[in-house]
């Protein structure tokens, strides 16, 4: 097997343009499929853009190669924008994206590992982090340099399974594990602080033994700095608490619960794309 080259980071891709393109793809996909979860997609667009252009060492021509970094998207409902990021990263043609949720395709509404580049099928919340922990444990045991990354939603931090994994990872000194929480403050049926408060959120992770970085989840330069510093504390897994806005990039969708469910109308789609492209 050839060794991973620096080109596999795709530093040539511009995270700002990448974020813009995957937002537009996701809007079109969700509109065409009349699907939900566009708000959850848009809130993590910038995190995905930085991960796929500045952090993850991947090989789209060999999606399963042994030394790749692993990204487990635990908030599987944000499938549209994850598929969009994979297409932009070269795993498959962007033409495929318009088949999202269509009968007979593998582009299901929650991420599916039958799609090249998706490591694990998720959708039931609270599953991704334990899987990412197992991957990180295997990499450590085998003295491999690849990293295990997991994106969590804020709502799924209600799940006990996550806190079992949060307890486990520092005990086993998994500093090759990075969690990004897309903290957009709105979960499925209400605001996080009203449904089940997470604050003081960073303190909880710190108390469990994690290296905690809080940042603006839409500031791509800050995200890049935080990710490239990993691991900052030897022996400690890292959590990036990315403060985000649900529906970010489309003003009429921003910070609104309804965009967890609604699909944009033809006019709304045009308005949304125009706004993203003008930004």
């Amino acid at each position: 097997m050839s060794t991973m080259s620096a080109a596999d980071l795709r530093n040539d891709l511009d995270p700002t343009a990448f974020a813009k393109r995957i937002r537009v793809h996701a809007l079109r996909m969700v509109h065409t499929a009349n699907a939900s979860h566009i708000g959850s997609c848009l809130s993590m667009a910038d995190v995905l853009a930085v991960l796929y252009t500045r952090f993850l060492r991947l090989d789209p021509n060999d999606p399963r190669r042994a030394d790749r970094d692993r990204l487990i998207v635990s908030k599987g409902h944000a499938a549209a924008i994850v598929y969009a990021a994979l297409a932009e990263r070269g795993f498959f043609s962007a033409d495929e994206l318009m088949k999202y949720c269509q009968a007979g395709t593998s582009l299901t509404g929650h991420v599916s590992h039958s799609v090249p580049g998706i490591e694990a099928s998720t959708g039931s919340l609270g599953h991704g982090l334990p899987i990412a922990v197992g991957l990180a444990l295997a990499a450590k045991a085998d003295r491999q340099a690849w990293r295990s990354v997991c994106i969590l939603s804020d709502g799924e931090c209600d799940e006990g399974s996550n806190w079992e994994a949060v307890l486990f990872a520092p005990h086993h000194r998994l500093d090759n594990l990075v969690v990004v929480v897309d903290y957009n403050k709105i979960q499925s049926f209400g605001r996080v602080e009203e449904v089940l408060a997470l604050e003081p959120f960073a303190d909880k992770w710190r108390a469990f033994g994690w290296h905690v970085v809080e940042c603006d989840g839409h500031d791509r330069a800050v995200l890049e700095r935080a990710l490239t510093a990993v691991p900052e504390s030897a022996g400690k897994p890292t959590v990036l608490i990315a403060h985000t806005v649900k529906g970010k990039g489309v003003r009429f969708m921003e910070d609104k619960l309804e965009w967890h469910y609604k699909s944009p109308s033809p006019q709304q789609l045009l308005d949304a794309i125009a706004e993203v492209e003008a930004s």
Partner: peptide, 10 residues
């Protein structure tokens, strides 16, 4: 729960 998910990751 973590045990089983982690086993899958391994």
């Amino acid at each position: 729960q973590n045990m089983a998910g982690m086993a899958a990751g391994l």
